[in-house]
């Protein structure tokens, strides 16, 4: 197999609560390769959020090695981390995390503003990705004028705009009804089949089953890391 995008070795994360040390992650090792579709599963408190923050370069480990595309993340300063997040990682959050006062288009082009793209290129690319998630007629709408499913699509479009190396989705269907959730999972399936690498963080078994590989966490340790030979797949309606 080719070079992994993400390669973590023996990483731990310790939080100090008063005099006590709490291990959110203990000695976790994991590699993720291009075009994988991985679900990170675990109950609350299992350390999956901490792992996600780590993988998303929002946080740094207390110990261990994290290589992103062969680069040592521990060596990076805040600006380097911001650049990695901007160019290589597309975040999709449970609560969508759109800017409430900005239109869909403005929300989607935000990462390109920080990448320093020109206005015309930004707009063109934002229209492109919004169309690719089926929102070509909702570009001028603000988040409060959109349904939950549409908001999550805007967030996915925003995650896609920089052509990131991985898409990191944290409970993407957690705030949606099951029918809309299915639509969103279908969208992830499509993105995966187009060659994207997807990391799905969830505590729901049936959502995790959409992925092709399931990593289970418990008490900060990897409990299991298995291939899912029969991922859930919905026929396109």
């Amino acid at each position: 197999m080719n070079q992994p995008i993400i390669e973590i070795e023996h990483i731990s994360k310790v939080y100090e609560m008063g005099s006590e040390e709490i291990f959110a992650l203990r000695d976790v090792s994991l590699s993720i390769y291009p075009n994988e579709y991985v679900a990170i599963m675990g109950p609350s408190g299992s350390g999956k959020s901490t792992l996600m923050n780590m993988l998303g370069c929002l946080d740094t480990p207390s110990s261990g090695v994290y290589n992103f595309k062969g680069l040592d993340v521990n060596e990076m300063d805040d600006n380097d981390l911001a650049t990695i997040r901007n160019k290589e990682i597309g975040f999709v959050f449970q609560t969508f995390n759109l800017l409430p006062r900005a239109s869909s288009l403005r929300n989607v082009e935000l990462p390109l503003i920080y990448a320093g793209e020109s206005t015309t290129k930004r707009k063109q690319r934002a229209e492109e990705v919004l169309a690719s998630v089926g929102l070509q007629d909702r570009m001028g709408h603000k988040p409060n004028e959109l349904s939950g499913g549409q908001r999550q699509r805007v967030a996915i479009a925003r995650a896609l705009i920089t052509n990131p190396a991985i898409i990191l989705a944290d409970e993407p269907t957690g705030n949606l009804d099951s029918k809309t959730g299915v639509e969103i999972m279908k969208l992830f399936h499509d993105l995966h089949s187009k060659g994207n690498t997807i990391i799905l963080v969830t505590h729901e078994e049936d959502i995790a089953r959409h992925a092709h590989r399931i990593v289970r966490l418990k008490d900060g340790l990897i409990e299991s890391d298995e291939k899912n030979s029969q991922p859930t797949y919905y026929e396109t309606i």
């Binding site: 929002l58 911001a82 997040r85 160019k87 995390n97 935000l110 920080y114």
Partner: peptide, 16 residues
């Protein structure tokens, strides 16, 4: 604060 968090997640540097 939340908005600042979102912006940082999307790649905003401190200077931004």
């Amino acid at each position: 604060t939340k908005e600042i968090g979102i912006r940082k997640a999307l790649g905003a540097k401190k200077s931004s």
